[in-house]
Simulated scan of single mutants.
Amino acid sequence: MSFLTIERLTKTYDQITAVDAISLDIERGEFVSLLGPSGCGKTTTLQMIAGFVEVTSGRILLNGRDLSQVPPAERGLGIVFQSYALFPHMTVAQNVGFGLEMRRVGRAERDRRIAAALQLVGLQTMADRYPRRMSGGQQQRVALARALVIEPDLLLLDEPLSNLDAKLREEMQGELRDIQERTGLTTILVTHDQAEAMALSDRVVVMNKGAIEQVAPPETAYQTPTTRFVADFLGRTNTLEGLCDGRSVTVRGQVWSLAEAREAGPIFVAVRPERVAFGGTGLAGKVRKRVFQGSQWFFAVESEAGPIFVLAPNGSGTLPAVDEDVHLAWSMEDMRLLSREEARVG
């Protein structure tokens, strides 16, 4: 049995299904992200695991223990919220030790564990400081230390980095992953940020309208999405209509041979912008937009098959100008073929 097992977990509100019979296994020590747009059910799922939202049906098993009737305070979980929820009248050490005090941990052991938690998050010199005198990143570390100090079986993170600016958020992502790897703590992160989920996770759980679309390592979900929703949500993608005859795929007169036979019929082709190149004798088009993005250039091209986006590395040679006629090419290996059912969105 997996360390955390979710079996057909469902939550309904009157006639609305927020989470629709999802099942998921998480191994001990994994870092898993629940990823999806607002309203997809990811936060509700986390809150059911935490015990803050009552389960309509299904089971949550933590190390074989059914949590359905266990109060939140007795589930052995560490939780970090988006707001951090620090007590302004308490020092850093007092905030971190609050959970231990509620559990009636002895003073000597409490002091030892507070010191260890602050050392882990790099705040050992700020034990006597108050939250109002700390930056957002430092407050986030206090909240993390408070969750870790109780030595939880499972760490739940509810968009804990969303209030930080872009540069600090990126730095904290690295620190958070480093702490998780050092502690070996099984962790579930809720986020709508694709880059954050892919940077931190062993696996991502892409959710949409209360259901799970795909569960996979970040690289696999990005490179081989199983639905059009996943392809579109995990970064920008080009989705074009094509036709399969069983042995090849045709998009607007351009033909790619298949390594293995596939059922014939209408098909969608998904290809990432960074895999599309200018040149050759591929699809004809005209550049409609060209945007400098630092390390790369973004192009929007009007083509025979519809709009196509291209990402070209900065310094990769002469690049086309706006209104210039171009040809677009990519390889069979860079395409993901989606059936009509797989290509559904929403």
Rank of each mutant, 00 (worst) to 15 (best):
D66F: 06
D66E: 04
D66M: 07
L67Y: 12
L67C: 10
L67K: 08
S68H: 07
S68Q: 14
V70Y: 13
P71V: 09
P72L: 05
P72T: 12
P72C: 08
A73V: 07
A73P: 04
E74W: 11
R75Y: 04
R75V: 10
G76E: 02
G76I: 06
L77V: 15
L77R: 02
G78P: 07
G78L: 03
I79E: 05
V80M: 10
V80F: 05
F81I: 02
Q82V: 00
S83I: 00
S83A: 12
Y84W: 10
Y84H: 09
A85Q: 09
A85I: 12
L86D: 11
L86N: 14
P88D: 10
H89M: 15
M90W: 06
M90Q: 10
V92S: 03
Q94V: 03
N95R: 11
G97P: 02
G99L: 08
L100N: 03
L100T: 02
E101F: 03
R103M: 01
R103V: 02
R103S: 02
R104V: 01
R104S: 11
V105E: 00
V105G: 01
G106T: 04
R107G: 00
E109C: 08
R110S: 11
D111R: 15
R112E: 14
R112W: 05
R112Q: 14
R113K: 07
R113D: 02
A115Q: 09
A115W: 04
A115R: 09
A116K: 13
A116S: 11
A116L: 08
A116T: 04
A116M: 04
A117W: 02
A117T: 03
L118H: 00
L118F: 00
Q119A: 13
L120G: 03
V121D: 08
V121P: 09
G122M: 05
L123P: 00
T125I: 02
M126N: 01
M126I: 00
M126T: 01
M126R: 04
M126C: 06
A127R: 07
A127W: 00
D128E: 13
D128C: 01
R129E: 08
Y130C: 02
P131H: 05
R132E: 10
M134Y: 08
M134L: 15
M134D: 00
S135R: 08
G136T: 06
G136V: 04
G137A: 11
G137T: 13
G137S: 12
Q138A: 08
Q138N: 13
Q138E: 14
Q139G: 07
Q140R: 04
Q140L: 06
Q140W: 10
R141A: 02
R141S: 04
A143E: 05
A147L: 05
L148Q: 05
V149P: 13
I150N: 06
I150H: 11
E151M: 05
D153V: 13
L154Q: 06
L154K: 05
L155V: 02
L156V: 11
L156S: 06
L156E: 03
L161R: 08
N163R: 11
L164V: 14
L164K: 14
L164W: 12
A166F: 06
K167L: 14
K167P: 06
